[in-house]
Design a protein around this nucleic acid. Structure first.
Lengths: 336, 336
DNA sequence: CTGAAAGCGCTAACAT
DNA sequence: ATGTTAGCGCTTTCAG
C-alpha cells in the first residue's frame, strides 16, 4: 500500500497557521530582517513543523533574479575543471547563490543544449569554459545570451568576443617561467609537447618558452599534439623511437604531461634519471606514484574567486562592462 | 551603454504570432504529436525566430512532474562517483529527463542542505550515495522524502531502511573472487587494508576474503583504515615498519589502493616485484604510471542503468515497492 | 486537433 | 512591520 503523496506545505498554509499574510511569511524566508523577530520565530517554527520548503519554481517565476548561476565545463573529470567548479560553488554559496553544474563532454551539441537549459532555468549568469581551443570559435548562443543580457564569464579558454568577461591564465608567462627554470638547471636539450597550433593557450605557452630559451640552449624541439593524453602519448612515443631522450620534456598541460609520462614509462625510460619532465599544470597522482615533477601550478582558489566576482560585478553593477583578469602561475619544484 | 534586457519571448508571444492559442503552442513543445504537423511547423519556426525557450520554472510550477532527478554523491572527484554520475545523466537524457547534480563533500550538513534544495526544485526522484558508511545512518530527510513520496535510489552504500530502492555491489562476492584469484597465484601471505569496521561494504568484502582464504594460506592480516587514501597510507606504512612485505596487499577500494601504492613506493619497495597489490575497484592512473594491478572492476554502465531504472520504475508504477539490485564485479588481470 | 478558463506558489509594488 | 492586489508563464481540466 503506497501512502498518498502528502500535500506539500505552501506559503499559504504556513501563513494561515502562523496567523499572518502570505507576504509576511514570504519575507520570513527571503528578507527575515524585515519581519518582527517574534513573528519570524513563529513562522519558522510552523514551517519546520509542516516540513515546508520554498518552491523555487514559483519563486523564480516571479522574482527578478533566480540567485542561480550556471557553470559549464568541457570535462569535469579533468581535475582542473572539477576543482574549479567545486570552488566556485562554495564561493557562490557563501553569498546565497546556487550553482547549476553541467559537463559539456567536449562536445558542441552538449554545449548548445546546456546553454539552452540554463536559459530555461533563468540563471543570472554563466561561468563557462568553452569546448574549443580556437580563439575564433564563436558559438551562436553568445548572441542569444547577449540579447537576454545574461552575463558570461569565460574561464581559461579565451574567445575573441567583446561581450564576455574572462579569467585567463598568463600563458606566455607560464612559458617564460618554465624556460627560465630550465635554464637555471643548465638544461640543454628540451622537447616540448604542446597543445594544438590553433589554440591560443598552446601558442602563447610555446612562445614564452621560445622567448626564454631560444638560442640559449643546444636544442629546442616543439611537437604539436592536442590537449588530450592520447595524442601527447603518441607524439612522445614517436619522438622516442627516433631520438635519444632529451634532458627535459615539457608538457603543456596536465593531460599532455600524463601522456608523456605514460610513453616514457612504457619505453622503459627512467623518469627523472634518464629524462626529466617539466609540466605546465600540476600532474595528477604523481606523488602517489613516487614522482615530484617540477611544474607551474595555478591557484584554483584565485581563479574561482575571480570568475565568480566578475560574474557578480556584471550582475550588481549594470554599468560595468566586460572585464578581463589574468592570473599568473607559480613554479613548484624541489630545489629552485 | 548597456542594451536593455530584451523581453524574453513567452509562449503567449509565440502563440500570438503563430495565430494559435497558448495551449496549442504549449503542446507543440510538450506533446508535439498532438498538434497538426503544419501548425507545429509554424509554431516551431516562430519560436526559433523569437529565440523562445521554455520557462522551466513556470512549467514546473504547474506540471505534475518536473522530469528532473537529483543525483547526490559524497565526492565527485572520486572516479567511481564521477563516472557514475556522468553515465546516469546520459541515461536520463535519453528519455527526456534532466539531472541536477550535487556533491555533498562527504559532509552531513551539505547532504541535508542538498536534499532540501532538491525538494525545492521539485525533483521527481533522487539517486543518492550517502556520506556515511554506517549501515545504521538514518538521516532525518528520509522521512521527509517518504512523506513527500519522492522515490530514493541508494547507490553503493546501503542503509537499513525499507523506503529506499538500491543498487549495491556484491561485496562478499568481491572478497571471495579476490580470495580465489589469490589462491590461484599460490599466494601465501596477504595483508588486507580494509575500510572502517562499521561499514557494511568493508565488512562484507573482508568476510568474503576470509571465507576464501582462511586456513588455506600461511597468513592473512586484516588492517582497518577508512575509505580514504591517507589512513590507508598510514596503515600500510605502519605495517611495513614492523614487518616484511607480504606477497599481496589487498586494497578494499580505489582510495585505499592508492594509499597502499604511495606507502610502498615511498618505502622504496618495488611494486609487483617485492610485493604485489590486488585492488577491489580499479586503480586510477595506474596504467599511466606503468602498473597493471589485478583488480575487481565494476561495470559503471550497468550500475548507472540499474539505478536510473529503479528510479523510473518507482515513478511510473505507483504500485511498485522499493527494490534492490545487486551487481557483481569482474576480475581484471593480465594472466588468470 | 484546438481552445477558454482557472490556478499552480510565490513576490513586486504599492498601500497602511 | 505588515497587508492587499495583481500577475509571473505555463499546464490542467473540461469543452468543443
Amino acid at each position: 500500500m503506497v501512502s498518498a503523496r502528502e500535500k506539500k506545505a505552501t506559503l499559504a498554509s504556513v501563513a494561515e497557521l502562523a496567523g499572518v499574510s502570505k507576504i509576511t511569511a514570504s519575507r520570513a524566508f527571503s528578507q527575515p530582517n524585515k519581519v518582527h523577530p517574534e513573528t519570524l520565530q513563529r513562522i519558522l517554527l510552523i514551517a519546520e513543523e509542516l516540513g515546508y520548503s520554498i518552491n523555487v519554481s514559483a519563486r523564480n517565476l516571479r522574482a527578478k533574479n533566480s540567485k542561480t548561476i550556471g557553470i559549464v565545463n568541457p570535462d569535469m573529470a579533468n581535475p582542473f575543471f572539477g576543482g574549479l567548479t567545486r570552488l566556485i560553488s562554495l564561493e557562490a554559496q557563501k553569498i546565497g547563490y546556487e550553482t547549476l553544474v553541467f559537463d559539456s563532454y567536449e562536445s558542441q551539441e552538449h554545449e548548445d543544449r546546456i546553454i539552452e537549459k540554463l536559459i530555461s532555468y533563468n540563471v543570472d549568469a554563466i561561468i563557462l569554459s568553452v569546448i574549443s581551443n580556437d580563439h575564433h570559435y564563436h558559438p551562436q548562443y553568445l548572441k542569444r545570451l547577449e540579447k537576454l543580457n545574461i552575463p558570461v564569464v569565460l574561464v581559461d579558454r579565451e574567445l575573441a568576443v567583446s561581450y564576455c568577461s574572462g579569467v585567463y591564465i598568463d600563458n606566455f608567462d607560464c612559458g617564460v617561467q618554465a624556460g627560465r627554470w630550465l635554464l637555471e638547471q643548465n638544461t640543454q636539450r628540451v622537447v616540448v609537447i604542446s597543445g594544438p597550433e590553433n589554440s591560443n593557450v598552446a601558442r602563447e605557452r610555446v612562445m614564452g618558452l621560445q622567448a626564454a630559451l631560444q638560442g640559449k640552449i643546444a636544442s629546442l624541439e616543439i611537437r604539436y599534439a592536442d590537449f588530450f593524453m592520447d595524442s601527447a602519448w603518441q607524439e612522445t612515443h614517436d619522438w622516442l623511437q627516433n631520438n635519444p631522450p632529451p634532458d627535459y620534456f615539457v608538457g603543456c598541460n596536465n593531460q599532455i604531461s600524463l601522456g608523456i609520462i605514460k610513453a616514457c614509462i612504457e619505453k622503459g625510460i627512467k623518469l627523472t634519471e634518464q629524462v626529466s619532465l617539466f609540466s605546465i599544470d600540476q600532474v595528477s597522482h604523481a606523488e602517489i606514484y613516487g614522482f615530484r615533477f617540477p611544474c607551474i601550478s595555478h591557484d584554483l582558489q584565485e581563479i574561482a574567486w575571480q570568475a565568480f566576482n566578475l560574474a557578480m560585478r556584471r550582475l550588481n553593477d549594470s554599468e560595468s562592462k566586460s572585464a578581463k583578469v589574468v592570473v599568473r602561475g607559480k613554479i613548484l619544484a624541489e630545489h629552485d
